[in-house]
């Protein structure tokens, strides 16, 4: 359904592959609808947090995985969304339906401004620029305590959009599932579009891109703004869902964690953002349940090294490869 590239050959092979895609998508939908009736409230809440981080992660997939730009300000855009939602609710009593477009507009503006640097600067120097903006954002969120609550942060009201209370876990779940799927579909479509090829060219070979007429600067710029928007919307969802935010959620380490998560999941595929987000949310939880939460950071570092050494493509593409391998070997036996 999402993947157009793989049906490039319309000569026969497209048929069964389409069917398989349909099966996957149907199964996925069934699971999405069944989950709230299987899981306890707390786990449902965690699934919601996963969806939030997945949406932010999708932004990184577009930015880093598709276009090859390293951003250390991703958590800052997440923070902009979160603070707009929380400040709007706490200080001005604004409902979510109003704060969302505001968060969107501010992230668009901020992304469009920081993105200007991406027109000319790439690689590590661009990462440094984003780090600098991230540090400024963190500094401001601590210093401007009248509004942001300083280091203590803010309590945020649960989202309420058009009379529907998303403080209710099942309502929240469906909102997050819907937005998560929408963001995922958007990400797949971007990848498989002409712009997706321009992004890949920008990432893999600037010479190939330019000699095919792709504007590298423009591609970088648009990808950066889209990434910022994904992260901002995710942040907007985050504050209402989690209920309390503080600057720690949005500092350099938060940006690095998001990056680590998508790399572990698989940075070139939208599904990798989901696996990465699930890792970010559930693995610490499981360590906590086992009473060894202090071992989680060690695992995190070691796993990152291991992934880079053994599965540099990330978990999702490795699984896909394994599945495909399984499929063909079974086919051979028949």
């Amino acid at each position: 359904m999402f993947n157009m590239q793989s049906v490039a050959r319309s000569d026969g092979r497209g048929g069964p592959e389409n069917l398989r895609h349909m099966a996957w998508v149907t199964g996925g939908c069934l699971l999405v609808f069944a989950l709230p009736f299987i899981l306890e409230t707390y786990w449902l809440y965690l699934v919601g947090v996963t969806a939030v981080y997945a949406i932010a992660g999708l932004g990184l997939v577009i930015l880093f995985g598709f276009t090859g730009q390293l951003s250390l300000a991703h958590a800052s855009f997440f923070g902009i969304g979160a603070y707009v939602s929380a400040i709007g609710g706490v200080h001005y009593g604004l409902p979510g339906i109003v704060t969302l477009p505001i968060a969107f507009a501010i992230c668009l503006g901020a992304g469009a401004f920081v993105g200007i640097f991406a027109l000319r600067i790439s690689g590590l120097r661009f990462a440094l620029i984003t780090l600098s903006f991230g540090e400024l954002f963190y500094w401001a969120s601590v210093r401007w305590s009248d509004v942001t609550g300083g280091e203590q942060g803010l309590y945020a009201e649960p989202l309420s959009v058009m009379g529907i209370d998303f403080g209710d876990p099942i309502n929240a779940y469906f909102l997050f599932a819907a937005l998560g799927l929408l963001a995922t579909a958007l990400c797949f479509r971007l990848r498989d579009s002409s712009f997706g090829r321009a992004m890949a060219a920008t990432r893999d070979s600037e010479l190939a891109a330019r000699s095919s007429g792709v504007s590298v600067a423009r591609t970088r710029y648009i990808a950066f703004v889209i990434g910022a928007l994904f992260s901002g919307v995710a942040g907007w969802l985050f504050s209402g869902h989690v209920g309390a935010i503080s600057p720690n959620f949005f500092d350099m380490f938060a940006s690095l964690n998001m990056l680590v998560a998508v790399i572990i999941g698989g940075v070139k595929t939208p599904l990798g953002a989901w696996v990465g987000a699930a890792y970010l949310v559930f693995v610490p939880e499981l360590f906590g349940m086992a009473g060894v939460s202090n071992l989680y950071p060690i695992l995190s570092g070691a796993l990152l090294v291991l992934i880079v050494l053994v599965l540099p493509v990330g978990i999702v593409p490795a699984l896909q490869q394994a599945l495909r391998h399984l499929g063909t070997s079974r086919g051979d036996k028949q």
């Binding site: 590239q5 002409s194 090829r197 060219a201 990432r203 893999d204 070979s205 190939a208 095919s212």
Partner: peptide
């Protein structure tokens, strides 16, 4: 584009 397929490269 090292990370992409032959088809994507030609489509570029």
């Amino acid at each position: 584009l090292e990370g992409e397929t032959v088809f994507v490269n030609i489509m570029l």
